[in-house]
């Protein structure tokens, strides 16, 4: 299993806002672990989904040069459960971004209804750990991740080119 808790971005406004979705399926192991015979998604993993949505939004703002680490959950409040077959929609907005850190506010929807609010703080760790050294390579945004991203970007460009040709 890969530690990936979003399936797809549906909106992405660089430096401002991103929206990602996740389809929840009964095949996922975690749904069976929290309460036997009552499969629901743990809210800690819903927070992780928001952290991945927002973390990529923050990382992209500086072209994935920074190592963006979730540093603080400023707020997380939920109302309801996430069940198999439902779709989560993560909407993240950057409130503040500085050299050393970023703050985002987020809303998560489950099948179109507000499920909760999640506000997070990310640290750009190379700028913000009073002299501690981290490995040179970016272990947050790995080469695999960047490769995946380049492929998506190329596909989007191709699709946009195709649409232009159709309208001409």
């Amino acid at each position: 299993m890969r530690w990936i808790w979003i399936d797809r971005f549906v909106e992405f406004e660089s430096g401002k806002r991103a929206v990602a979705i996740k389809n929840v399926t009964l095949a996922e192991e975690h749904l069976h672990d929290l309460y036997p015979a009552f499969p629901i998604m743990p809210m800690s993993l819903v927070i992780e989904g928001m952290a991945q949505t927002a973390g990529i939004l923050v990382g992209e703002t500086r072209d994935f040069r920074e190592k963006v680490i979730l540093a603080k959950i400023r707020r997380a409040s939920f109302d309801g459960f996430v069940r198999p077959g439902q779709q989560l929609r993560y909407e993240a907005t950057i409130d503040t971004i500085a050299d050393e850190a970023a703050q985002i506010s987020g809303t998560v929807y489950c099948d179109g209804q507000v499920l909760g609010r999640i506000d997070l703080m990310f640290s750009h760790i190379d700028q913000n750990m009073s002299g501690l050294n981290f490995p040179q390579e970016n272990f947050v945004f790995t080469e695999d991740f960047k490769g995946l991203l380049r492929r998506y970007q190329a596909e989007l460009k191709q699709e946009a080119g195709g649409r232009r040709q159709e309208t001409e």
């Binding site: 603080k72 503040t96 500085a98 640290s123 913000n128």
Partner: peptide, 13 residues
Amino acid sequence: SIDFLDIVFRLEK
């Protein structure tokens, strides 16, 4: 330590 940055951001706002 991370709370100090959080406090700075919140005070700015």
